[in-house]
């Protein structure tokens, strides 16, 4: 650790790195800030400041279509998160705590693919599959699709947590007369809980973010919020979109901070 200092010495390189660093932060944050600021502008024209106003938020509150899509989104996120968290956690246990079962390597690879696959490809795959097996497109098909990509993300997060947890904890529990279930319930689960919750929050976020896959596998009336907003954006840029966007970013921030708070608590 001491030599980290050497790497961050007050050299010319380091000044360039700092400059780049702050530039990247500006790059990452300024666009979002512009959206947030203008969501509070009273002007009907997006680019001009028309004084502080909440009129676009008030307008949102009365937008039936938008509220319906929000409701869809929340249901989809809730169900897909619950299932993905349970399945993903079990998968992480299978990979980290049981090393010698037959097709473990194959499973590991399959589990990894949904993370890198482009949305469009996954969307096409699921659309073809659902139409082929005759599954009606609607809220159910959206939930099934979201579970499919969320399992992997949960498994990755939980697995990272498990990797930091010595298996002597479980051995000690077994040595102290705990059955397998008691060991899981009293020792393993409480210790990986930050990972499980972190994975669940990530799944929730991804589900609330998804546009492409949902737009492929949705049916009439089952549109989710991001898909609805995407449609609006494609048509035109309006201050109302700024307001929705601000709310969506706020929701994401709440999720990040909850996730961080949980991880932090888990470390102590």
């Amino acid at each position: 650790m001491t030599s980290r200092h050497a790497a961050s010495g007050r050299t010319r390189t380091d000044r360039w790195l700092s400059l780049n660093g702050w530039f990247v932060f500006a790059f990452l944050y300024l666009p979002i800030l512009v959206v947030i600021v203008f969501s509070f502008s009273g002007a009907a024209n997006v680019g001009t400041w028309g004084g502080f106003s909440l009129r676009w938020y008030r307008r949102l509150a009365g937008n039936e279509q938008l509220l319906a899509s929000l409701e869809n989104s929340l249901w989809v996120a809730l169900y897909s998160t619950i299932v993905a968290t349970v399945f993903g956690t079990a998968a992480a246990l299978a990979l980290d705590r049981y090393r010698r079962w037959a097709s473990r390597g194959t499973f590991d690879a399959i589990l990894y693919l949904p993370v890198i696959i482009p949305d469009v490809t996954m969307a096409v795959m699921l659309l073809l599959w659902f139409t082929q097996i005759g599954l009606p497109l609607g809220r159910a098909s959206i939930i099934l699709a979201h579970i499919a990509f969320n399992i992997s993300f949960v498994a990755i997060v939980v697995r990272a947590r498990l990797a930091h947890m010595d298996s002597s904890m479980e051995e000690a529990a077994a040595d102290l007369y705990a059955t397998r279930w008691q060991t899981f319930r009293r020792v393993t689960l409480p210790l990986i809980m930050p990972g499980v919750l972190g994975g669940a929050l990530l799944a929730l976020t991804l589900s609330l973010d998804d546009v492409v896959i949902t737009s492929f596998v949705q049916g009439p009336g089952s549109t989710t919020l991001p898909v609805h907003v995407f449609g609006l954006i494609r048509r035109s840029v309006t201050p109302e979109i700024n307001a929705v966007s601000t709310l969506m970013v706020t929701a994401s921030m709440i999720l990040v901070f909850s996730s961080l708070a949980i991880q932090r608590r888990g470390e102590n």
Binding site: S168, M169, A172, A174, D175, Y177, A178, P190
Partner: peptide, 20 residues
């Protein structure tokens, strides 16, 4: 016989105390 059914207990090298 699994460890939880043996009349034996262990003190682990790393102690393996439950941190929670």
């Amino acid at each position: 016989r699994p460890p939880n059914k043996r009349p034996i207990n262990t003190v682990f090298q790393s102690y393996a105390l439950f941190p929670h």
